[in-house]
Amino acid sequence: MSADKERAITAARRILEEHNIQRAPVPVERIIKSRNIVLDYAPLDEDLSGMAYSQDGVSMIGVNALHHPNRQRFSAAHELAHHVLHEERLHGEVHLSKGLRALRRDQVSSQGTDPLEVEANTFASELLMPHQLLLDACGKEGLDLDDEAKVEKLAKKFRVSVSAMKYRLASLM
């Protein structure tokens, strides 16, 4: 199975349109809550950014409260992707305590090899740094990836990490 990045981008854009998002930062928490998904911030192991799960008919996203707020936003968007794109998998993946089933965001997901994780990262990038909003923010002069000050300014505007912004900008070039 290979990652379907276009499906992930289309799903993220559909959500942006449904919520009439026209400027950054994208209100990811509001979007999650509008879908009746419980969002919980709790201290987790350092290598665990978040998890998506469903139990007893309740959909939930857990985010590591110990991580930087920008990383938390990306983790929340990534986990939302699993609910949107992989809902059927949330009922049978990793088992945690007392029969809890989850898709975990950890080192494996960040390596970019698992198709589900590639799709979730693609979705999160498009949701938090929408293509058109990013182009508008870069302006007519475009963007030089070596212009650290401009990249940092964009990251701050979109409330994402500098590394996430660099990766996103590189993918658009």
Rank of each mutant, 00 (worst) to 15 (best):
P43T: 11
M129S: 04
N70T: 03
R13T: 03
A149V: 13
L154W: 02
Y41I: 00
S109I: 06
H19C: 01
K150F: 02
Q111A: 09
L96V: 03
E17K: 15
L44F: 04
A42N: 07
Q111H: 07
A11Q: 06
C138L: 13
H82N: 10
H82A: 07
H91F: 01
A170L: 14
A76E: 12
R168V: 01
S161H: 10
Y53S: 00
H83Y: 09
L90A: 11
Y167N: 14
K98T: 13
S125Y: 12
D45E: 09
H67N: 14
A24H: 06
A42W: 05
H95M: 10
Q55L: 06
A24D: 08
F123Y: 08
H82L: 07
M173D: 10
D144W: 07
L172Q: 13
D47M: 02
Q55A: 01
V28M: 08
A102Q: 09
L134V: 15
I9D: 05
D4H: 05
L80V: 00
H82W: 09
A12P: 14
L90E: 11
R30G: 10
R73E: 02
E152F: 03
R35G: 03
H86W: 04
A164Q: 15
S97A: 11
L44Q: 09
S163V: 14
V94M: 10
A12Y: 13
V108C: 00
L133T: 06
S2D: 12
N121Y: 09
H83S: 10
G57M: 01
H91M: 00
